[in-house]
C-alpha cells in the first residue's frame, strides 16, 4: 500500500522550504505543546506496571495487542540485504486491523474522520514498510496518535499513564527493531542522540526534574541517579524499568558494542551536565531543531483535521 494511499492525511512537506511553513503551522504548535505538556506531567513519577484507570488501560492493551501480532509474525527466510521483509507482513496486519485497534482505545463515540486519522498515525508509528527502518519521524507519529486521543478526551492526562503508554510503545518498537533488524532511519550514526529515539530521553529526564523550574527539588520517588551514571551498567540496569531515559540507554547497550563515549558521544557529553533540568530542557530544544525542524524527518508527516497545515 502506498504511504499516502489511506486517503486520509495529506502530504504537505515536499521540499526543504516547506519545513519553514510547517514550523508556523497549527500542527507544529500542537505537537510542540503536547510534548512539553507530557514532559511536565511525568515529573516525579516512575514508570508504573499498570494503568491508573480503565481508559488508559484500553490504550495499553491495544499496544500489547500490536506487540502480540508482532510476536506472531514470521520472519521471511532467505538472504536479505539488511532488514527482514517479515516487517511488511506485520505492518500490513496492523493496517488491516487499524480501525478496530483505534476503536478499542475509545472511551466514547468518535467521528469516523477522527478514527481514520488516528489510525494512520498509529500505522505510521511502526516504522517504514518500504525502507524497513525506524526513526524519530515514526516516533513523532506516535506522539500525534497519543496526543490526538488525549485531545479528543479519550483518556485523562496524568504522569504515570503517559509514562506507561510511551514505555509500552518503546518496548514494542525495540522488539520490532531487533526482530526485523530495522535500520536506523536517517541515522546520524554516532553523532546523533540515538539511532532511533528521542522522546524517551525527554520524558525520562523530565521524570527526574521539573522542566519549568530549575530550583525546585525533584519529586522523583527513590534515588535520582546522576546523569554521569549512564556509563555504569549496574545503575542503568537498576533504573531501566522505572525511567525512560535509562530504558533507552539500556537498549543502546544491548545493540551497540564498543566504548560508550565513542558510539554515543552526544549522550556521553550530555551525561557531563550537572542537572536533569538542563538535560530535559536541552533535549526539548534539540527535538525542535533536529526532529521537528528537519526535512528528512518531517517530510513524511501527514496533515488533516487533528493536526492542521493551515
Amino acid at each position: 500500500m502506498d504511504q499516502w494511499g489511506f486517503g486520509v492525511l495529506s502530504k504537505k512537506i515536499n521540499e526543504g522550504p516547506d519545513v519553514q511553513k510547517f514550523l508556523k503551522s497549527p500542527a507544529y504548535k500542537e505537537l510542540d505543546r503536547l510534548l512539553v505538556l507530557f514532559a511536565s506531567v511525568v515529573h516525579g513519577h516512575q514508570c508504573p506496571k499498570a494503568a491508573s484507570n480503565a481508559n488508559a488501560a484500553k490504550l495499553v492493551n491495544m499496544i500489547s495487542l500490536m506487540s502480540d501480532t508482532l510476536d506472531q509474525t514470521p520472519l521471511e527466510p532467505g538472504q536479505h540485504r539488511f532488514g527482514n521483509p517479515g516487517f511488511k507482513t506485520f505492518w500490513n496486519a496492523i493496517v488491516e486491523k487499524r480501525t478496530q485497534l483505534v476503536e478499542s482505545c475509545l472511551s466514547k463515540p468518535e467521528s469516523e474522520e477522527n478514527i481514520n486519522e488516528l489510525s494512520v498515525y498509529l500505522v505510521f508509528s511502526l516504522g517504514s514498510q518500504v525502507r524497513l527502518d525506524y526513526g524519530t519521524g515514526h516516533e513523532l507519529s506516535f506522539l500525534a496518535f497519543v496526543g490526538g486521543l488525549y485531545r479528543l478526551n479519550h483518556f485523562e492526562l496524568n504522569g504515570p499513564d503517559i509514562l506507561l503508554l510511551f514505555k509500552s510503545y518503546l518496548d514494542m518498537t525495540q522488539k520490532s527493531i531487533i526482530r526485523f533488524t530495522l535500520e536506523p532511519a536517517g541515522s546520524h550514526g554516532v553523532w546523533g542522540l540515538d539511532d532511533h529515539f528521542h522522546i524517551p530521553y525527554i520524558l525520562g529526564a523530565a521524570q527526574f526534574a521539573d522542566i519549568h523550574d530549575s530550583a525546585s527539588d525533584s519529586k522523583y520517588p527513590g534515588d535520582v541517579p546522576k546523569p554521569s551514571s549512564v556509563t555504569n551498567s549496574h545503575i542503568v540496569n537498576d533504573n531501566k524499568e522505572k525511567n525512560l531515559f535509562f530504558d533507552a540507554i539500556s537498549f543502546i547497550y544491548t545493540v551497540k558494542s564498543g566504548p560508550f563515549f565513542a558510539h554515543s558521544p552526544m549522550l556521553y557529553d550530555i551525561s557531563g551536565l550537572p542537572s536533569w533540568y538542563k538535560i530535559a530542557n536541552g533535549l526539548i530544544k534539540m527535538y525542535r531543531a533536529e526532529v521537528l525542524g528537519k526535512f528528512p524527518v518531517v517530510q513524511h508527516f501527514g496533515f488533516g483535521t487533528l493536526y492542521q497545515w493551515q
Binding site: 539488511f82 550514526g189 554516532v190 545493540v255 551497540k256 558494542s257 564498543g258 558510539h263
Partner: peptide, 9 residues
C-alpha cells in the same frame, strides 16, 4: 563492518 557500532553486519 558492524556499522555505527551496532548493525552486526
Amino acid at each position: 563492518p558492524n556499522y555505527c557500532y551496532r548493525c552486526g553486519n
